[in-house]
Simulated scan of single mutants.
Amino acid sequence: MGTTTAPADRGLTAEEAMARLVSEGPNTVAAPIPRGLVGRIGRQLADPLIALLLVAAVITTLLGDLPDTAVIVLVVTVNTLIGVIQEVRADSAIAALDRLAAPTARVVRDGRDVILPAADLVRDDLVRLEAGDVVPADVRLNEAQRATFDESSLTGESIAVPRVTDDEAAAGTVTMSSWSRSR
């Protein structure tokens, strides 16, 4: 870990932040490799119960029981179709949640407050959070005054959770009240 040469309330220097961004990379989660239709269908058919049904369909075909074969094939087809549709919807929901994540962050650099893309945050950045802000990265609160956070996106908790100095706030949660500074 590097050291910060600026006083704690001045934040990192632009040079330190750039060096960390280059060496550690951006504050982003790698996007999953998109799956095509064939890959999605293959994942559905690879399920052990579906494989068992396909074996049963082959056996009933060999025994000449075509009505049972047709029912089994219909069940496998409907199940695969529903599974693929649910997978596509889940991927769309995840993409929508990613778009809701904090796009920008208020950071102290060289002693000044600047707003920059959340992807440009680096370790030891001094982030300022106010009511209504989405937490742009997992942070430790250096100073917190009556700070509460809506963590429902992570925990399902319906009540804002109070946080004090030295507590952590998770990325994607929402600052509900007060003022805090975090690293």
Rank of each mutant, 00 (worst) to 15 (best):
T3W: 15
P7I: 11
A8P: 00
R10D: 11
R10Y: 15
G11P: 02
L12F: 10
L12K: 02
T13S: 11
T13M: 08
A17F: 13
M18Y: 15
S23E: 15
E24P: 03
P26Q: 14
N27D: 08
R35F: 12
G36H: 05
G36P: 00
G36M: 05
D47M: 10
P48R: 03
L49P: 00
I50T: 07
L53Y: 05
L53V: 00
L54G: 02
V55F: 13
V55K: 06
V55D: 05
A57D: 01
T60N: 00
G64H: 10
P67I: 01
D68C: 00
T69A: 06
A70Q: 03
I72M: 10
L74Y: 12
L74I: 07
V75S: 01
V76S: 03
V78G: 01
N79L: 06
T80F: 11
L81R: 08
I82P: 01
I82R: 14
Q86F: 10
D91W: 12
A93M: 13
A95D: 04
A96S: 11
L97T: 01
D98F: 15
P103E: 08
R109S: 03
R112T: 12
P117Q: 04
D120E: 07
L121D: 02
D124M: 09
D125R: 03
R128F: 13
V134A: 09
V139K: 04
R140C: 07
N142L: 12
N142Q: 12
A147L: 11
L154H: 07
G156V: 07
S158N: 06
A160E: 12
A160V: 03
A160M: 09
V161Y: 08
V164I: 13
D166M: 11
A171Y: 11
A171D: 03
A171S: 10
A171L: 10
M176H: 15
S177I: 04
S178W: 11
W179L: 08
W179E: 10
R183M: 15
